[in-house]
């Protein structure tokens, strides 16, 4: 079993399971902050999947995509947190 097979058939399905579990919390989440936390975990999952895909495909451009996703996830989380806090400042 080569490393690409191991990454494709063991690691990526585990990450897909984690993605689906985070998706359940995204749909269930009782408050808005729960959904934001679930989205943050989904962003981290996508970053990990991109790291594995870089190893499987041999292309190093996926790390740039991971960096962009980290930036966008952080900015989105901060924006929604500011929105939640402004909503309570009445």
């Amino acid at each position: 079993m080569t490393l690409a097979d191991f990454a494709s058939f063991v690691v990526l399905p585990l990450m897909g399971v984690a993605f689906l579990i985070a998706m359940i919390r995204l749909f269930l989440g009782p408050s808005l902050a729960d959904r934001v936390v679930a989205l943050e975990v989904i962003g981290v999952t996508v970053m990990c999947i991109l790291g594995v895909l870089a190893i499987v495909s041999g292309s190093t451009s996926y790390f740039d995509v991971a960096l962009v996703i980290a930036l966008v996830t952080f900015l989105g989380t901060i924006a929604v947190a500011a929105y939640i806090q402004r909503r309570t400042d009445r």
Binding site: E40, V44, M47
Partner: peptide, 29 residues
């Protein structure tokens, strides 16, 4: 690139969690 991404995530994840937690606590979760 790997060091950049890991340092960035390690710096921003606590900040984001702090802001979400503070906003949610003030909202009354």
């Amino acid at each position: 690139k790997v060091i950049t991404v890991v340092v960035f995530v390690g710096l921003t994840a606590p900040v984001a969690a702090h802001m979400i937690g503070r906003a949610a606590y003030l909202e009354g979760v």
